[in-house]
Write a protein that binds this DNA or RNA. Structure first.
Length: 567
RNA sequence: CGGGGUGUAGCUCAGUAUGGUUAGAGUACCUGGUUUGGGACCAGGGGGCCGAAGGUUCGAGUCCUUUCACCCCGACCA
């Protein structure tokens, strides 16, 4: 492409609202332009990057036997009613009626559509397994889209779905897809981590997220210092503390603790470690039809993990509750304890099961119990994992310690089991001629989010630094002075030669000054720029590598071979 | 969905407290000239329903009411 003809509106100024590097540079370098909240136009450069990422995905998918399809973007609302997700998704589903008053939704994901496509067409175990996927625009009417391509309402996702006759076969496919996804991210030049994730409302027996490591990531992940373990903080586990602080020794006793309400005060007042205190987090737990106050008890040194709390209570959501609401039902904030607690339902963190030497509220103003042995509640209370892991906690799989880092969720793979096939009555006949629901897996990867992720990981103050597999053009040929005939002649000849070799090449033939064109090339982020300039008189040109910002002199006679070596 | 903020030239923003010539700057764009190794300079030029609708006033970018959009924090997010 000739730069003079290219539609690449670069700008010195970033959009006023852009905060992320990927948003700023993709906008400034003329890749994307915003249309409305969470909606972006992809301009030629972005389109090329997207296509390159899609090609990598396609190649890896075809290696593992997945087949590409494309389902319609507009989906009948009936299907969503059939699976029950029309309520679950709520306002995120963009709904509308056609001229015949039929209700449709723009597809936010395609489980229902894919099951509908396969049911009654694949009817025998002999035709399983089957793995179908598509690259498709998705639409989710998010409450708060943000961060450019990172969290748009409209975005491109690769979504794949597999169908199996057994859980074992699903496990095999899941493993194969995890490997394929890892290969894809490695090829794209991304540093990532595969982590265990919360399966959430979609259910299923397992899910893993592929996280691109970046400070700007919206997810917190816990990773082990010595083994491969990594997990989203929503799902992260830990081992019991192998070296707990020294336990306070006391006979079971009600103890006067005037005005001591917080865990810090309590630990200070009794001169004990917060590890031996029991904290209560009161929340309102919301179900489909009703809501109620639930008391969550955990160690004073821990915090409630809301996703775990939701899973433990089967709730739709959990919201804060005021002290007044607690007093109304006879609960005394600051002195809430699990013993003889009959005012509200409660959930106790599983680590407190059988824990001795604890201190907790006595459900009476200004009193705490000391010397509590939680064993007394062993058979009567509901224990569940509700505590959030802390940095420094012990890995659940080895002796290592956990630390936190931020990640961008670019992939999520699920073992769905039969959730959707049962809901949508999608069945096949097994060896005995008996109808069985498909065992399913689903595998998502955010294509447009990957575009942003590459830049989050690969940029500097000058702009984008594309990796080889993602670059919109591999080589930029810069003619420093367009009035110099020798420079133009060499530029044109190299341009033709590289095109001949199918190298993706840009020829900067604009009538601009050297500095302007360099800044532009750096902002866009071509991996290599061939600078044809003053040194041409002495038979030399330069190769500028974007990543290192180094210029290397090359003899004119060998420049073609030199650049072919690099690309 | 709660809290906050912003809408003026393609883009980034002044101007709005206290209403008053023809609404400004930088940048981008067009013309001409100079310049040609780090977003260069000089001269000239085009570009605006001041988010929208009502209202107050002799007069509204500026005051009042309504509304829409976008952004930020949080909640939410297979």
């Amino acid at each position: 492409m000739r730069r003079s003809r290219a539609f690449i509106p670069t700008s010195k100024e970033a959009p006023s609202d852009a905060t992320l590097a990927s948003h700023i540079y993709l906008a400034r370098a003329g890749f994307i332009s915003q249309v409305a909240a969470g909606l972006y136009n992809y301009m030629p450069l972005a389109k090329r990057v997207i296509r390159k990422i899609e090609n990598v995905i396609n190649e890896e998918m075809s290696k593992v036997g997945a087949q590409e399809v494309e389902l319609s973007f507009v989906t009948p609302a009936d299907l969503w009613a059939e699976s029950g997700r029309i309520e679950k998704f709520g306002k995120e589903l963009l709904r509308f009626k056609d001229r015949k008053e039929n209700l449709f939704v723009l597809g936010p994901t395609h489980e229902e559509m894919m099951v509908d496509l396969v049911r009654n067409r694949v009817t025998s175990y002999k035709n399983l397994p089957l793995n179908l996927y598509q690259m498709k625009t998705k639409f989710r009417d998010e409450a708060r889209p943000r961060f450019g391509l990172m969290r748009g309402r409209e975005f491109i996702m690769k979504d794949g779905y597999s169908f199996h006759a057994s859980v074992e076969d699903l496990d095999r496919e899941f493993e194969s897809m995890e490997q394929a996804y890892k290969t894809i991210l490695t090829r794209l030049g991304l540093e990532y981590r595969v982590v265990e994730a919360d399966s959430g409302a979609i259910g299923g027996s397992g899910s893993k997220e592929l996280m691109v490591i970046a400070d700007s990531g919206e997810d917190t992940i816990a990773i082990c210092s010595s083994c491969e373990y990594g997990a989203n903080i929503e799902a992260a586990k830990r081992s019991f503390n192998p070296n707990p602080p020294k336990a306070p020794e006391a006979e079971f006793n009600k103890f006067l603790t005037p005005d001591v309400k917080s865990i810090e005060d309590l630990a200070e007042f009794l001169k004990i470690d917060a590890y031996y205190t029991i904290k209560c987090v009161a929340k309102r737990v919301v179900y489909e039809e009703e809501s109620e106050i639930v008391l969550f008890f955990l160690r004073g040194c821990d915090n409630l993990q809301e996703v775990k709390a939701i899973n433990a209570t089967d709730a739709l959501e959990i919201v804060d509750v005021s002290e007044e609401e607690l007093k109304e039902i006879g609960i005394i904030p600051g002195f809430i304890g699990p013993l003889d607690q009959d005012k509200a339902k409660h959930v106790i963190d599983c680590e407190l099961k059988n824990a001795p030497n604890m201190v907790c509220g006595a459900n009476e103003k200004d009193y705490h119990y000391v010397g509590v042995d939680m064993k007394v509640l062993e058979d009567v209370a509901y224990f569940a994992e509700i505590a959030e892991v802390n940095e420094g906690d012990t890995c659940p799989h080895c002796e290592g310690t956990l630390s936190f880092t931020k990640g961008i969720e670019v992939g999520h793979i699920f073992k769905l089991g039969t959730t959707y096939s049962e809901a949508l009555k999608a069945e096949y006949l097994d060896e005995n001629g008996k109808a069985q629901p498909f065992v399913m897996g689903t595998y998502g990867m955010g294509v447009s989010r990957l575009v942003a992720s590459v830049i989050e990981q690969h940029h500097d103050e000058q702009g984008c630094i594309w990796t080889k597999e993602t670059a919109p053009y591999m080589v930029n040929i810069m003619i420093s002075n367009i009035k110099n005939e020798a420079q133009v002649a060499l530029g044109e000849s190299l341009y033709a030669q590289l095109q001949e070799k199918n190298v993706e090449v840009m020829l900067d033939d604009r009538k601009e000054r050297f500095g302007f064109k360099m800044k532009d090339a750096e902002l866009i982020g071509f991996p290599y720029t061939i600078i044809i300039g003053k040194e041409l008189e002495n038979g030399a040109v330069q190769i500028y590598e974007r990543k290192t910002q180094e210029k290397q002199a090359v003899n004119v006679d060998t420049i073609f071979e030199a650049i072919m070596e690099l690309v």
